[in-house]
Simulated scan of single mutants.
Amino acid sequence: MTPAPPPPVLEPPALEHVGTLSVLIAEPIDVGPTPEGHRRIIPITGGTVAGPRLSGRVLPGGADFQTLHAPELTELEARYALETDDGAVISVDNAALRSGSREAMARLIRGEAVAPAEIYFRCAVRLRTSAPTWDWVNRTLFVGTGERYPDKVVVHLFRML
C-alpha cells in the first residue's frame, strides 16, 4: 500500500495595495426599523482615490445602504463610481461589515468621531469597467479595511494576488 502524500502547505493569498479611497458622505437618510433590521441610506457626494495602481475621483451619486442588525453590528452595501485620472469610469460594489462595542458603534451612528482601532471594518470589493486599459480590475478580487469619520469613509483597497 502506497503511503498518502503529505498534505499541501496552504498559503494565504498575498495582497497588494492599489489605492486609498476617501469617500465623502452626506447626512444619513434614516429608513427606520424593518423586518431585516434598522435601515439607513448614506448618500455619496464625491471624494478621491489615490495609490500606486488606482487614482482619480469618486463621482457623486452613489450611496451606502446600511442594515443595523444589532447595536454592535452593521452590514454595508455601497455602490458608486470612480473616474480614473485617464477618464475611465469604474463601478464599485463594496460589501462590508462594521462592528465594535455597543458604545463605540452608538457614537459612530450618531456621527461622532471614533478611533479606527475601536471598530472592525472590513470589506470585499468588486470593480467593473468597460475601459480596455482597466480590464484587469474586472478579473481581480479586492478586499479592504475601512475607517468611518463624521464626513467621509476611508477604504484602503488591496488586490488579492
Rank of each mutant, 00 (worst) to 15 (best):
P8K: 01
F158H: 15
Q66K: 12
D30N: 11
A106K: 04
D30M: 13
I44Q: 09
T48G: 10
S130E: 08
P5G: 07
I42T: 03
R53K: 08
A106G: 06
D30L: 11
V153W: 06
R57M: 02
L141T: 12
E36W: 04
D64C: 03
I90V: 11
R79K: 07
V92K: 11
N138D: 03
Y80H: 08
L54C: 03
L127N: 03
M160T: 14
E36S: 15
V154A: 11
L97E: 14
V154L: 15
E103V: 09
P8M: 04
H69W: 07
P150A: 04
L108W: 01
E77Q: 11
S101T: 15
V23Q: 07
A14W: 09
P5E: 03
P5S: 01
Y120V: 14
T67R: 10
F65I: 07
V18C: 10
P43I: 00
V153Y: 05
E72V: 08
L10Q: 08
L76T: 12
T67G: 06
A124T: 14
G146H: 06
I29G: 02
E83N: 05
G37E: 04
R57Q: 11
D93S: 15
H17V: 06
E72N: 11
F158Q: 07
H17D: 04
F158E: 14
S91E: 15
A95Y: 15
P5A: 01
L10R: 00
T133D: 15
A104V: 01
G37F: 06
I119H: 05
P33Y: 05
E11M: 08
A14I: 00
P43R: 00
G32K: 04
D86L: 03
V92C: 12
E103D: 15
I29D: 02
D30V: 13
T34G: 08
V23W: 06
G46T: 13
V49A: 10
Q66R: 10
D151T: 08
S22Y: 10
T67H: 11
V89N: 04
V18M: 06
L161S: 13
E36H: 12
R40Y: 02
R148M: 01
L82F: 06
P28F: 02
